[in-house]
Design a protein around this nucleic acid. Sequence first.
DNA 1: TTGAGATTGTTAGATATTTAACAAAGTATG
DNA 2: CATACTTTGTTAAATATCTAACAATCTCAA
Lengths: 227, 227
Amino acid sequence: MSAANNKDGKYKYKGIPLTVVKRLPGYQRLLSELAAKEVERVSSRELAAKMKINPSQVRQDLSLFGSFGQQGYGYRVSYLLSEINKILGINAETKMVLVGGGQLGRAVANYRNFAKRGFIIEAIFDRDPRVIGRTIDNRVVRDVQELTAYLQAEPAEIGIICTPASAAQEVADQLVAGGIKGIWNFAPVALKVPETVCLEHVHLGESLMILSFKLKQKQEELFNQKK
Amino acid sequence: MSAANNKDGKYKYKGIPLTVVKRLPGYQRLLSELAAKEVERVSSRELAAKMKINPSQVRQDLSLFGSFGQQGYGYRVSYLLSEINKILGINAETKMVLVGGGQLGRAVANYRNFAKRGFIIEAIFDRDPRVIGRTIDNRVVRDVQELTAYLQAEPAEIGIICTPASAAQEVADQLVAGGIKGIWNFAPVALKVPETVCLEHVHLGESLMILSFKLKQKQEELFNQKK
DNA sequence: TTGAGATTGTTAGATATTTAACAAAGTATG
DNA sequence: CATACTTTGTTAAATATCTAACAATCTCAA
Ligand SMILES: NC(=O)c1ccc[n+]([C@@H]2O[C@H](COP(=O)([O-])OP(=O)(O)OC[C@H]3O[C@@H](n4cnc5c(N)ncnc54)[C@H](O)[C@@H]3O)[C@@H](O)[C@H]2O)c1
Ligand SMILES: NC(=O)c1ccc[n+]([C@@H]2O[C@H](COP(=O)([O-])OP(=O)(O)OC[C@H]3O[C@@H](n4cnc5c(N)ncnc54)[C@H](O)[C@@H]3O)[C@@H](O)[C@H]2O)c1
């Protein structure tokens, strides 16, 4: 365990560069796939090839958290996977609540793979009387007015925001008041939360625009080649 | 227009670092919000504050594409927005097809904000006979067996994959065979496509794991402070 | 049991990205 | 219309990230 710490916490989470953090789930998925295929060992070279990065980077990323491999052998898949799961906080039964039982909220609530990894949606809230009382995957949708009180009685770690952007900040405030520790936000708006609360945005619209940009650039590239 | 070009195209799209590309939609959204509020002018300092980045970075990002501001004044919101829209390929009527009319596919198909920006889902495909023939937001779901033939008759630029991971590669191949130029993939799997096709992955599960990691780190941080 | 071959963890060097600094050129105000 | 102020675009310096290199050390086949 080495990890050079930096004075400003800007891009770092406790000495881990955000660029590294973003690769961790990729390693997790690859290792899960290998484990499912009952592959026993894997080298940094193989992992790197699948991630389309450099083998050095794999070794350096992992070395920030510890020494999980063996010279001349590589990494034992099951061991490395369990270590990465620990690092990511997977399989630790993380309780969540979801706010906004619309199109996207329902898709997220019905998705089984999150629960499979220990991320459980305990309750769902909405504002619309037509939605409140309906059942989504065995959970009755509650009135968002009860949100803060519910959380005080039944604490959860993560709040998922699937409301329109206009309501997102208000919902975030209620989640924070209820003692939530992290917010997973699908609304296209920058939220303000206290420093103690972690934020993760899902930018679907932005992702589509990035694809659009790449397309335009590629077109131009091909056009220029023809000349 | 300056743009220092680099020999390897690895992280670059025609000389534009991917880190910059990822910030462009953020600028777009901020400028849209300002335009909606009828704000006339904005400085790099103001934009930077909202994006939580450095003003120098804003100016440098924009300068890769041209000179859009005025000394002593800043940027005219409407002009900069229209330039960024051009850069991103927004409002150019981009045709798309969606494959997989399940939970997530329906949410995406029903979402109006994409069409509002010129990204139109022309057709929807599925494999399940119970889904085929149903209507999603005025579009009848077609049989995925017709996908490639449909595209040859009705070309589209972007294919959206909302099928399970196990079917995603097969669907991608069909989209490519139909002449699609870019793929927006929601399935948690790395797709293989020809070099001429652009790829953009949406990693919902990975995003949740990143939040989980941040939470764990923050907990440890707070714990260490108490000591 | 030995020795050739493999692969890690780590340090140092190469690249890329971000930030600072500032001349140039405009604005705005009296 | 002069002048103090603002803010851009750009160049250069500071940081951060990625890649190469290699000693240390384990594997595995003979
Ligand atoms: N559907 C998509 O594909 C998509 C894509 C990109 C972004 N998003 C974003 O995700 C969010 C949800 O999108 P959607 O398509 O599910 O919208 P939706 O309209 O289907 O659902 C929103 C739900 O939030 C509820 N709601 C509104 N105000 C609330 C409040 N104050 N408290 C609790 N519930 C409230 C509504 O009653 C509704 O049920 C939006 O912010 C949207 O911009 C969605
Ligand atoms: N729902 C979520 O919140 C969520 C979150 C993260 C990732 N994802 C991913 O998004 C994808 C879709 O998720 P979902 O929840 O909508 O699943 P879903 O099961 O509700 O929908 C999948 C749809 O794809 C169709 N399909 C299957 N094979 C097909 C094929 N070969 N051609 C055309 N259609 C086919 C199915 O009939 C079904 O209608 C999955 O890969 C999932 O892992 C979803």
